[in-house]
Amino acid sequence: MADLTMEAPRSRLRINSSAVVMGLYLLFLMMPIYWLVNMSLKTNQEILSTFSLWPRNLTLQNYVTILTDPSWYMGYVNSLIYVVMNTVISVAVALPAAYAFSRYHFMGDKHLFFWLLTNRMAPPAVFALPFFQLYSSVGLFDTHVAVALAHCLFNVPLAVWILEGFMRGVPREIDETAYIDGYSFGRFFVKIFMPLIASGIGVAAFFCFMFSWVELLLSRTLTSVAAKPIAATMTRTVSASGLDWGVLAAAGVLTIVPGALVIWFVRNYIAKGFALGRV
């Protein structure tokens, strides 16, 4: 008891200083985002004429513009199509591979694992030009498949590494018991193993989704009209004529939404996902 009473004032003081540090840091993080949202709710005229910390004439016109103009909203549709395709492909091929890496030794396993890592680390800038040539020559230029496949370059390795990190946490005894009970590999994998690492699959899918969603260079290089992603739509508007800051800000806000929607569910796995399952 004596120990507790002695401890109380000191710890409260520490909590307060922590709160100040965290408050300042979060303020620093939120300010630019707030400004973007603020911009998106103003008319372009207000943005350019008056400087105000909050919208005087609250308007949703910018969002209406985006959601009714096909050249804008098709950007989101295109992005979503190739991102979902990429996520499905990446996780599907990564699952068996990650299982192999987490359970078995085989010829060249370490080198293969390392080679996958180098692809996660490879700069898209290096691959932009050959990808452009490759997909042009096979007639896939400006299709969603091309971007989805191109993003596999870094997303497949990412998914393999993340899933391997989750799978190594599952005791081997479970596999062995299932095999003794007469499960075939396929049935065991789908019925028993996948539910066990469901959260891992979710995290891997989330990160594949996200890295494909945020990527600009490859998706811009491999598309021109039909599959043009939202990221490219945004940059091209800036460079052309559209200094329509309100619409640009609204477009930005809308791209943040998918991440913000699921953030709560993955909050405890963010570090693990970025660290390729190694935390």
Partner: peptide
């Protein structure tokens, strides 16, 4: 804290361009 990590990179650019 996770929020900035999940923002598309070009939007990060846009945010700071405006900011």
């Amino acid at each position: 804290m996770s929020l900035p990590l999940l923002i598309p990179w070009n939007v990060v650019g846009t945010i700071w361009q405006i900011f």
